[in-house]
Amino acid sequence: MIDLPRHNANFCPEHFTRFCRDQVERAISDFDMVQPEDRILVAVSGGKDSLAVWDLLLGLGYAADGLYIGLGIGDYSDTSGGYARRFAQQHAEPRGAKLIEIDLVDDYGYDIPGGARAARRTPCSACGLSKRHLFDRAALDGGYDVLVTGHNLDDEAAVLFGNVLRWQTDYLGRQRPVLPARDGFPRKVKPLVRLSERETAAYCIVSGIDYLVDECPMSAGNKHLGYKEALNEIEVRSPGSKADFYFSFLRRAVDRFAPEPAGIDTEPGTGDADRADPGVLRPCARCGSPTSTEMCAFCRLVERAGGSPPDAPPARPVTLGRRGGPDPTGTPSP
């Protein structure tokens, strides 16, 4: 039995599982996230959210493979990889899906702690930059139609909270659960936006999904976690506040923030903007990915960390030029 104060209800495991499935179906439908025939790549970490979204998508009948990136964060990475592989063997492969793996140390010659020091970034910044680049590239190179991430309601509310605190209007205009494919970037969607992280954790437990509970040792004290704690203080006094905050923003406010050219290699609110000339894209001299500078932020990170350069530029089409043009999906372009 799980209690959900924001719905003023207790759920038995069977109905809670159905509730989670319904919330994901509704998110997919409301935001036109994926089509039934789409090939999906799920960014998998071994934690509750990524395993829950992979399981839910497979349960809904989607063709969804997983991609796990070994980050080289000591025992934490070894353990998280184990959870991802066990889920793949027990829950994904029987349903026809596979787990793809990339290892930063083996494949690129650096790890997150070393990369962060060399690039003078926070570990979370170096990690986010690396994962975004590699997930994007894997989705495009693998011919996937859409990249799914396990961002949940708490993640989105916390990012929104941080962006509002600083009135980062460029990020606010881009904070949507769907980022359309464009300029050499894959379509990205977040099917868990209607579920809190307490709910995704509960989904894993009632579904028999073993996930990594321990937090990344490098994330302690980051401001994103502080925003979540602050929002939970409000939520416990006024259940439903996080959902109201985020979904009211999407309904009433996001369109008011005119999309502005922002740095690429970034997600809204993550502070990884590459701002040399944020409106003009060109192929990275090293890897071919779209960037606003001579070399993309990922390749600069690899170079500073003393790692191995990525392979030669991929032979995939990259539409170059100034961003902000018409969005084929009809969604305002961030």
Binding site: M1, I2, D3, P5, N10, G47, K48, D49, T122, P123, C124, S125, C127, G128, D154, D155, A158, V159, E197, R198, T200, A201, V213, E215, C216, M218, S219, N222, K223, H224, L225, K228, E229, N232, E267, G269, T270, G271, D272
Partner: peptide, 23 residues
Amino acid sequence: PGDERLEPDDVVEVRPVISGGSE
């Protein structure tokens, strides 16, 4: 759930659900 009564000799885990490492 919150209104459940825990008894002596129960073994209980309080499992955190907050995660995330965005900068």
